[in-house]
Design a binder for these strands. Sequence first.
DNA 1: AATAAAATTACAATCGGTTGCATTTTAAAA
DNA 2: TTTTAAAATGCAACCGATTGTAATTTTATT
Lengths: 345, 345
Amino acid sequence: MKSKEITIYDIAKELDISPATVSRGLRDHPAISRKTKKKIMDTARAMGYRSNTFASSLRLKRTNTIGVIIHRLDSYFVATVLAGMEKVASESGYNLIISQSLENTEKEIANANTMFNSRVDGVMASLAYDTEDISHFEVFIEKKIPLLFFDRVYKHKDCPNVVIDNYKAAYEITSHLIEQGCKKIVHVTGNLKRNVYADRFEGYKKALEDNGLKYTDELLIINYMDEHIGPNVDAAKQILAINPLPDGAFITNDAFAAYCMRELKLAGISIPKDIAIAGFNNDPISGLVDPNLTTINYPSYEMGEVAARTLINHLREVTDMMLTESIVLKSEMIIRGSSLKKGAQ
Amino acid sequence: MKSKEITIYDIAKELDISPATVSRGLRDHPAISRKTKKKIMDTARAMGYRSNTFASSLRLKRTNTIGVIIHRLDSYFVATVLAGMEKVASESGYNLIISQSLENTEKEIANANTMFNSRVDGVMASLAYDTEDISHFEVFIEKKIPLLFFDRVYKHKDCPNVVIDNYKAAYEITSHLIEQGCKKIVHVTGNLKRNVYADRFEGYKKALEDNGLKYTDELLIINYMDEHIGPNVDAAKQILAINPLPDGAFITNDAFAAYCMRELKLAGISIPKDIAIAGFNNDPISGLVDPNLTTINYPSYEMGEVAARTLINHLREVTDMMLTESIVLKSEMIIRGSSLKKGAQ
DNA sequence: AATAAAATTACAATCGGTTGCATTTTAAAA
DNA sequence: TTTTAAAATGCAACCGATTGTAATTTTATT
């Protein structure tokens, strides 16, 4: 004998008014008098009424739900972005539906379809490792469902994106390594088709060039960049295989850099004396490894907040996000022991 | 001119049959002939039909959505649990709505209400740091919406929980410290009202007792256990303030333990020689700090999978989870350098 | 070919909230 | 008191899928 669900019809009957008035009263419609509104509100509370979102969504064609597609939940960076998004969304009365592609394009396509069928009001996405064709996102654009990319973005005229200046950050941190005396800096990074890695690579190369250092392909180590394959030794091994040994390494992920550092240390390399290391993200791990890791502070929580706020404001027609091409957040270098060949500053 | 949404009525008109047949055809109802079904399916695909979930939910009183309430997304442990949940849920056609309490009971209450109003089919929750009264969850129980707790659980006759044996794990790791020669072991942990911390505390005390060591309140350091307050030095300071200095520490969170280790090392303490350290969770950080941290492997991803599977099977009436009181997952100790006073094994 | 049985398909009500427009009530003006 | 305007409320259709029951068609049986 489950307690029956209360509807506006029940409230209407109770107060002997029409359901339409109840509906308007509950939504604070101006055509309803103060007095009636109060009666309705009170009765609704007393009877334990809760609005049926489906009936409402069915009528209004809105869900107050935002879909988020990310590559994986269990990454410090992603979890932090999500935390920021969730905060803003929940403050604004939106629910978040989150799904992970696990770096797999097939799954990303499936997720996009699920979101589409769930009729989310908007979508925030960060692409999987090797997604190139984004036609699975076209459905949103066609149906005018706002779509926004963050971090791993795709430049599309109908999709704003929220990013940091990866090029500049990479340029800056590479320059720092050079300034510390590095002459041969390897770059460990991910799939160069992804904007984040491509931009960092360009920044890195430009810094070398501007400082009279020559870039050769030998210096580029492409890696899967997965924090979760556990102690990854491949990259470290590849570094060690280079002859003569590099004296600097710019690794585009702190967790990954931490694993490399461990392997290098095990191989008897001294950091930063033999090789100076710089990471990316300002993962908490960067402050815990020995020596502490020089890195780029990536405002992940803020990125989540900004992305969510931008999308929600657009949904509410507060602002038109389609006027925006991209939002670039501030990032800054954090210099720590792992790169200080010249000794502490 | 946004393309109009296709409904079963459109398909019905196109094929000159009734909407009822279309509905049944799409859901593979046995009363519809093979031939008609095929026609319906093909036309639906051709016309770009997508089912309207609200209309369906309104009718069926189901949402295929599961609510998850956690304390915070940006915690390694939580993110990993969520990853496991998301995997299982998405495989089974369920969406996950995730909201974080940020360790705040007020927000947890608000989240529970949102979930309730969103009419989730079921809920998985891990309690906030100091939630004691769980009456905000009673609505689910009253409305027979299955509710399951994981990790930070609350024993309630209508709510199964998924946990590890915190008592045993703590007993084991404390015994290990003792076996390594520790005579004075401090315990750094969280709010003892939370089962996870209470159970670990009991296991720790029992291990001391069984080995003839005396427990005194001086050895207990209660801390907020937040990985995100950044370099937390309080606990480390408190340890250093104890006279004579302890020779062992069991800290119930790896990230937290890592921060403590850093502070202790800065204070000139040698680990494990002066103080042996043990953590909890098997956070990746445990394998990166120096020395590597002895810890308990907490099967977080598996916990997420198990919790989600249990709830979904219940929703699908495959199994009746209400027959289960709790599911205890295996955990095991991982011995690493931070606790090996007697040298590597 | 006639009839019964089985297999398909259609009708119409339902789920609960929303909203354009019509109607009633109340207040203000004449 | 009557007229008119403004404010408040009600009517009824609609959103799209589902389903019990009735109606129709097909197939099998004699």
